[in-house]
Nucleic acid binder design. Structure first.
Lengths: 208, 208
DNA sequence: CGCTATTTTAAACGTATGTTTAAACTAGGT
DNA sequence: ACCTAGTTTAAACATACGTTTAAAATAGCG
């Protein structure tokens, strides 16, 4: 395995667990068993390393996601919201084949990116991957055309919040759930739980 | 104003904006116009300062919240979910009288507490303020008795995520919304938007 | 006033961070 | 084998952090 990939793998895991601010280059390079200077040699800076970790996932995910939404919108002119959100399942879970714990890690990273580092990652994602965002908005628009753009804006951000927050603390939540309910659950179980929730939230009656 | 309060005010604002990890004691003391050593003199450590900032709000909020939920449950044996969540409005907005931007700051701090600092703040809140949490669970239980404890667990955490995430980036979201829709909105407007969403999410039909 | 206890101050401490340097090492090609 | 381009390494760099120290200033009280 190349030094570059060893760094990316170690950084991904640590960033997901402890956030970007909370992880030092020395932790990363010691877990990756490479020299400290290797990060700056291969990536230039810590900020660029963060972008590289996210890009590896986004490049894997965004085409799958776009085609899933495309397929859905071609199959039926007015899909249901549950169908729209369910279109995320297969692309998201495919990240587990791409890499161990890929789904969970990616979603946790996404959560970190929104709260750590004063939103520079949000800017990076929305400017670098705008098409997948607009296909998603388009699909929701078809599913619930009565929603005004403003209400849709808020509800999609609420949805983002639900998913991203849940996933950024999913390890702790899964632990609690297993202790309290004696029931094994994994990331795909959480996804199954969250879809009805966000679909109903977006579908909520419009406030008077 | 006392040194202690100057520190608390400055810390609160900076913690809300940039997170606990992202804010240094030097930033806090320079904004508060006090000496660097004053933090350790008055609070002992940065960790204790974080607790003090949160406690100031929790001590203000939790009795109001508990009595609001109590009142609702006394008025009607089976309140609606919208009523349960609406019981949060007055106590939360009362923080604005307690302190400028109090509502927004507190909710942002809550969001930071869940993602920063590896959940030590979550432990602090759940152990220090358990009664308000259980009154809330009790109220939701009455509003939607068919919900199993496990489903309730997940949906309440989804709700927590929606609120906390939205509020921790509410400044940015309000900016975007104002640019895109030419419409002034404030924190209470966001609360009005979020209540139908979370109520519908919690009320979602139980997955088969 | 004079004494004591509390608070404030400037300076330093030790540690940790991201980054840079320059030398050592390691292929790959001719 | 030799040179070169790419890579790895140990060491140092400058800066920032939370915390501690001990002296100076302030306040409260008899």
């Amino acid at each position: 395995m190349s030094t570059k990939n060893k760094i990316l793998d170690a950084a991904e895991q640590l960033f997901a667990d402890k956030g970007f601010n909370g992880t030092s280059l020395r932790e990363i390079t010691s877990q990756a068993e490479v020299n400290l200077a290797a990060v700056n040699y291969h990536f230039g800076s810590k900020k660029e390393l963060i972008k590289a970790v996210m890009s590896r996932y986004m490049n894997e995910l965004s085409p799958r996601l776009e085609s899933a939404l495309q397929t859905l919108c071609n199959q039926e002119a007015q899909p249901s919201l549950v169908e729209v959100f369910s279109a995320f399942i297969e692309p998201l879970l495919s990240l587990n084949a791409f890499k161990e714990n890929g789904t969970s890690n990616f979603l946790q990273l996404l959560g970190r990116g929104y709260t750590d580092s004063q939103g520079f990652l949000r800017w990076f994602l929305t400017t670098q991957y705008p098409t997948v965002i607009s296909s998603f908005i388009n699909a929701v628009q078809r599913a619930y055309p009565e929603l005004t753009p403003e209400e849709m804006f808020w509800r999609l951000h609420f949805t983002m919040g639900t998913v991203v927050f849940t996933m950024s603390s999913s390890d702790a939540l899964i632990d609690i759930a297993q202790n309290d309910f004696n029931k094994t659950i994994d990331i795909s179980g959480v996804i199954q739980q969250v879809i009805p929730y966000v679909a109903a939230g977006v579908a909520a009656p419009i406030a008077p």
